[in-house]
Write a protein that binds this DNA or RNA. Structure first.
Lengths: 187, 187
DNA sequence: TTTGTATCGTACCGATCAGTACGATAATAG
DNA sequence: CTATTATCGTACTGATCGGTACGATACAAA
């Protein structure tokens, strides 16, 4: 059975193809499990999606959170974050979390809750990080911290959406960089 | 039967609830038509979606195109465009076209083609409009016109996505305004 | 009125759906 | 070894799916 392997494969499938492309029957065939085993392990598609999303969190979001929470100069972290949202290696393009976020109302209850939890987690980390940026004078002092965090979050989301639509990394990066310049102090 | 009424109702339903929430059976019931009549008129869900999207184009995109193509100062048109993407009256939030655009690979062949056609139409109009902005000195002269158009298009898309996620209009507008400042000449 | 034509929707098709009952099989205990 | 327990997947359920055959009905031409 191997639930770990299945959750990982499901993550890749959802990430690559979206969540509306396969029925439970098809999922089970593709994941190489029987339907009863699948329902015993995950309880239904909602459970599988939660497992896949948790897997994704570990794989891609935890490293991002680590970047934001590391106690390093805002100035140095910023380009790494931008690189993180525009570049992928050996994985599907874009961001599974972002894709699910845009489909809020079409998710199962557990998956929806998980998405909202991750949203809050990221928002909090972004907010704290932005306050550092302000304290370090990298972000213009007359911008409200909460707004700066919202703004950066939106721009990162846009970059991930565009990457999902196959816009080339360099173009996406150029756009994000330009958008973030609007925040910076002109010293 | 009244295909017009049906296409309009379908547009509102897709706009409001997404495209994955109703089966053909459910669609027919909701739209008040029989399945044979539905298939005679539209040929299938792909046809209905094309009809709905054409309706949307007339309702929301044609006015936007008119704004962009009117021969008025860039400076004056810009805030109107921003208002257009952040404000809706008596309609669902966000933008049906944007929602479909993000679902590229999950659309029928006709709908996919229609989405790509509208994409091209908008990109062309945005590009021409940006060249005006450059010629009028509102956009910094060292920015490539094609890039400026891409950038503005991305920011408008992001605004429409956020509106679809129920982010309040004022907040979205503030973000777009900030992002667009990055383009402007500091005279 | 009769006949031809166009449009209607009921009632059906086989396929597939999400979900499970239950017998087969494997693993563990005694 | 036998008995017990835990896990497996085959094969089924009723529901719903996308799609259509075809008889009923409305209407136009004669």
């Amino acid at each position: 059975m191997d639930p770990e392997r299945i959750a990982e494969q499901a993550m890749l499938d959802y990430w690559q193809d979206g969540i509306h492309t396969r029925s439970v029957n098809q999922l089970c065939k593709r994941l190489g499990t029987s339907k009863p085993a699948f329902y015993r392990e995950f309880g239904g598609e909602d459970g599988l999606m939660v497992a896949a999303l948790k897997h994704y969190r570990q794989l891609r979001l935890v490293p991002l959170l680590a970047m934001l929470q590391a106690d390093r100069p805002f100035e140095y972290v910023l380009p790494e974050v931008v690189a993180w949202v525009t570049t992928e290696r050996d994985t599907p393009r874009g961001c599974l979390f972002t894709k699910l976020r845009l489909l809020r109302d079409e998710l199962g209850p557990e998956t929806g809750a998980q998405v909202r939890a991750i949203e809050a987690e990221l928002a909090k980390a972004l907010d704290a990080w932005c306050r550092q940026g302000l304290a370090q004078g990298v972000i213009q002092a007359d911008i409200a911290p909460a707004f700066a965090a919202q703004y950066i979050g939106s721009q990162l989301t846009m970059a991930l959406v565009q990457r999902g639509l196959q816009v080339p990394p360099e173009l996406v990066e150029a756009q994000v960089s330009m958008a973030l310049k609007a925040l910076r102090s002109h010293i």
